[in-house]
Design a protein around this nucleic acid. Structure first.
Length: 489
DNA sequence: ATGTCC
């Protein structure tokens, strides 16, 4: 599906679909224009996709505030494109599961260490990766190591990462360095189906599949030494661990359950939409509130999931290196979610307003001073974690004041350019693993199929994505990491 | 992303 509509260049990093564009559903008008963050190099892959039409569709949501926006890693998704950001009004707006995604609170967590590749026995990477693979259930349909009762999973949904820490998965001080401190307080168990609870109970503490991973990385470049230092990143060669996973089958079930309800709500509240996948409900309707409070349960599940995985990552390092993880200073740098809707305050046309901000494949990028940022980082902006593909590089960025123009949002990762099916036809998993081995990256995939699907050539150039986010000023480059070892789900 | 159609 190629985009043939207007895409006007605004500046070096922004393109606009003007509000007089009439989309496929030409009886509906855009309420505002749509803004896509891209440069000349990126724009061809943006146009070669259904995503611009989806970005235009976002502008037709009732109660949208400001422009509909898409980050540079934009690509086709359910309803919203992945990379989509839209804010809606707290009185007249809507909440849409298609603006959050199926993997609610899919996110990234970064652990630092005091280890450096310089004085590190390189084949230890191999051993730690294999140990992590053993200790963290991964792959399609991966099941939890522990069996939770229904009342325990309910505690998880209420408490998020706090449940993990209270049950000896991690340290008390971990909590402070998680977005929302790892728990949304509006979680409402009455909005969760038994089916979702059962799926959740069997999967808590698992990595999942696809682009979910555990990576051991080294610091390759430090752009902002002072900010990096605040985040605990001090030296070239310093070893860190990046974790990327979400709410597994639980979030998927929550999204599915509530999409069914909101599909009906669209008719009930006489909402006109250009695409059924944008199913939504007024923010103050029972259906809208229930979705928002169910989404919080799934977000809490994901934070607890990442918390348990952090614990097993620390244990894996301890077993191989025979050192205590506290002595290795394996503290959390930060944890971000990139599939979520949040009630936040933003300045709109000079006025402070509360808004529901949908971020779907987009990361919060709050600049200096925001109360939501832990005190330790508040004067430099929040850490923003951007994973690349398994053969290239990943980034630690800092949130900026300028990101207020995107309601405090930036990109979330590389973004696919080749579908999974196409990738499997194009590459052999064994060869991909070998090629990466020759580059000094040890990959332990759950299957060779996933290794082919996740081949670096399936993704956009992460450097191009990050350079656009940096160039546009909606986040700034702090550290670049290179992978040394990968567990792929 | 997802027990990739209960």
């Amino acid at each position: 599906m190629k985009w043939n509509g207007p895409l006007n260049k605004i500046d070096k990093y922004k393109y606009e679909i003007p509000s007089d564009y009439r989309g496929e559903q030409n009886n509906l008008k855009m309420k505002t224009s749509a803004l896509i963050y891209a440069d000349e190099k990126m724009i061809s892959s943006v146009k070669n996709d259904y995503a611009p039409e989806q970005t235009a569709n976002m502008t037709m949501l009732p109660g949208i505030v400001g422009k509909a926006m898409a980050m540079p890693d934009i690509h086709w998704g359910y309803g919203f494109p992945i990379g989509g950001v839209a804010a809606t009004d707290v009185e007249h707006g809507v909440l849409s599961p298609g603006g959050v995604g199926f993997d609610i609170n899919c996110g990234v967590r970064l652990l630092r260490t005091n280890l450096n590749v310089r004085d590190f026995d390189y084949n230890k990477i191999h051993l730690i990766i294999d140990e992590m693979f053993k200790n963290v259930p991964s792959g399609l349909g991966s099941k939890a190591k522990i069996r939770l009762s229904l009342s325990e999973i309910e505690d998880v949904l209420r408490l998020g990462a706090h449940w993990g820490v209270e049950n000896n998965y991690g340290w008390d001080r971990d909590i402070k360095f998680l977005e929302e401190e790892g728990c949304l307080s509006n979680a409402d168990l009455s909005t969760i189906s038994q089916k979702a609870k059962h799926r959740g109970a069997s999967q808590l503490g698992s990595l999942g599949a696809g682009n979910h991973f555990l990576e051991i990385q080294k610091v390759a470049e430090i752009f902002e030494p002072e900010i990096a230092n605040k985040y605990g990143i001090k030296n070239i060669g310093q070893i860190v661990v990046m974790i990327h996973t979400g709410s597994r089958g639980f979030g998927h079930q929550v999204c599915t359950d509530h999409l069914r309800v909101l599909d009906q709500a669209v008719r009930k509240y006489h909402i006109s939409l250009p695409d059924r996948q944008l199913a939504c409900a007024p923010v103050n309707s029972i259906e809208g509130i229930n979705y928002f409070n169910a989404m919080a349960c799934a977000a809490n599940f994901a934070w607890c999931n990442r918390q348990m995985i952090v614990h097993w990552v620390r244990e894996s390092f301890e077993r191989i290196l025979k050192e205590n993880s506290e002595d290795l200073e394996m503290d959390i740098v930060y944890d971000v979610c990139h599939n979520i809707a949040k009630l936040e305050e933003h300045i709109v046309d000079g006025t402070r307003r509360k808004l529901y901000v949908h971020r779907k494949g987009a990361t919060r990028s709050f600049g200096p001073g925001r109360r939501e940022i832990p005190l330790e980082y508040r004067d430099v902006g929040q850490p923003v974690l951007i994973p690349g593909d398994m053969g290239t590089e990943s980034y630690l960025l800092a949130g900026t004041k300028k990101a207020e123009e995107t309601f405090g949002s930036t990109c979330h990762g590389a973004g696919r350019v080749i579908s999974r099916n196409e990738a499997v036809r194009k590459w052999r998993g064994e060869e991909i693993v070998n090629q990466l081995k020759n580059k000094g990256i040890y990959v332990h995939p759950a299957s060779f199929k996933v290794a082919a699907e996740e081949a670096p050539g399936s993704y956009k150039d992460i450097r191009n994505v990050v350079d656009i986010a940096h160039g546009a000023g909606i986040s700034k480059k702090v550290v670049r990491f290179i992978p040394l070892g990968v567990v792929k789900g």
